[in-house]
Structures are given as C-alpha cells and as structure tokens.
Amino acid sequence: MIERHTNLSICSVSQEDSLVVDGKSDLFKNAVFFDLEHYIYKKPICIGVFGCCYLNNKNDKLEVTQYMIENKKDAHDIVFMAKKYFKRAFEEHNKRYIVTFSGNNDFTVIGYLFKQNNIEFDFNQYFRNIDIQKEYEKERKICIGLKALEKEFNIIRDTEVISGSNLAKTFSKIIKDDTYIDRMPYEKKDKILLYNQQDVVSLFDIFIHWNSIMKKDTII
C-alpha cells in the first residue's frame, strides 16, 4: 500500500466567501473533503485511491491523506483503512460533514465494498454530506463537471487530467498482476496520486471561495 500524507499551507480564509449551509459559513472547519479513484466492472471491484483532506484548525494546514493499492491484498485492506480514517476524523478531529462532488457514486462504491468485507459503517450516523455539484445546480439551475467548475473558480491544475477509463485500466492491471506495480514508473504512480490530491484540494478551495464566484452579478 502506498500511503501519503501531505500538509499544505493555505491562504487566510474569509467566512464571508465560504459556502453557507444551514445558515453556517464556517462548516469548512468541521468538514472532510473526500474523493475516490476506483475500478468498476459491472459491480465495484476496488478502490484504487482513497483521498481525503481536512483543515487542521490548530495550524491552518490542509492535511491530505491518500492510500493507493499496490496489489489484490491492498484492495481488501484499503476499505478497512478508509473506515478507520473516517472514525478518527469524527472522534479525534470533530469532523461532522463530508464534502464531495457528485458523491453518490463514491458512496455507492465504498458502501458496496464495506458490505462485501463485513464492515459496519453508516455514514449518515457520523456525517452530513454536502455535494458541491448539487449546490451548484441549486444556485445556477444547471449541472456541471468538476473540471469545468475548477475553470470557473480559476483553479489551475498542476497535473493533466486523467480519464476514468485510464485509471480503471491501471487498477485492473494492479488487481490481476501483483508484480505490475513494480514495473509501473514512479512518475505514473505520482501522477495518479497528485491527480487525486488535486481533486480533494479543489473541493476545499471551491468551498471556501464559493461566494466570491457564485454571488457575482451574472447579468450581462
């Protein structure tokens, strides 16, 4: 298993710019920002990369945690590590919200794999989900993809976009061949992890700058 922990410095956050939910503008302090890269073939096969981040309110660092599978055994272990992460976020770090982008798919995948591995964990007992795509749709009455929304928020990716089909092919090879990961160039592994990291960090950036973009006068 590749396990990566990254602490990122952030600019000062203005609550006036943050997305308001239930009349609260500071929910980013108590939220986990969550995204999976996964492999589905008729049914969920595995989580390829688990990615989450949250704001450490003591030092104002964004703490990113990622797990990436290296073989078939890791595909089993990663779901247990995911549960442990969420429980620790709730119990030790007082996180009460999960922020996703079109999160139903990720919740379906992880829920299926939890059940397959006899893991009892009900997200609704611990967290409330805030789906950025749905919040955008409520505001603008149209649907949008994450990359298009990043453009609207002037977020420039450090890495190129990787298609879901290419990621699925990679995870399929990892599952079927325990030595494949050893033949994979370091640059490719790093590219996948950086891509996932950008996804979760973008969710945080969009959340805290929501009003600065969404509340602009859109009348031309």
Rank of each mutant, 00 (worst) to 15 (best):
I2K: 13
R4W: 12
R4M: 10
T6L: 04
S9V: 13
I10R: 07
I10D: 08
E16C: 05
D17C: 08
V21G: 14
S25G: 15
L27I: 13
K29A: 10
N30S: 15
A31V: 12
A31H: 08
A31P: 15
F33Q: 05
F34I: 13
D35L: 09
L36N: 02
H38Y: 13
I40G: 07
I40T: 15
K43T: 15
G48Q: 05
G51L: 05
C52T: 08
C53Q: 03
C53P: 02
N56L: 04
K58F: 14
N59L: 13
D60S: 14
D60V: 07
L62M: 09
E63C: 12
E70Q: 11
K72T: 06
K72V: 07
K72D: 03
K73F: 06
K73V: 06
A75R: 01
D77K: 01
D77L: 00
D77H: 01
F80E: 04
A82I: 01
A82M: 08
K83S: 00
E91L: 13
E92L: 13
E92P: 06
E92C: 09
E92I: 02
R96N: 15
V99T: 08
T100C: 11
F101E: 04
G103A: 08
N104M: 07
N104W: 00
T108E: 09
V109K: 04
I110H: 01
N117I: 00
F123C: 10
N124G: 15
N124W: 14
N124T: 10
N124Y: 15
Q125L: 14
Y126P: 06
D131T: 10
Q133I: 04
K134V: 07
E135L: 15
Y136G: 00
K138Q: 06
K138A: 08
K141N: 01
G145S: 13
K147S: 08
A148I: 11
L149F: 08
L149V: 08
L149D: 03
L149E: 01
E152D: 12
E152A: 12
I156F: 04
I156W: 01
E160W: 10
E160K: 11
I162T: 07
I162E: 07
I162Q: 06
N166W: 10
L167V: 13
L167W: 05
K169V: 09
K169F: 12
K169Q: 10
F171G: 10
D177A: 11
Y180S: 12
D182I: 00
D182H: 11
R183D: 13
M184L: 15
Y186L: 12
E187S: 14
K191L: 09
L193T: 00
Y195Q: 03
Y195R: 03
N196I: 02
Q197G: 04
V200P: 02
V201N: 03
S202F: 05
S202E: 02
L203Q: 10
L203G: 04
F207T: 07
F207D: 12
W210M: 05
W210H: 05
S212H: 10
M214L: 02
M214D: 01
M214Q: 05
I219L: 00
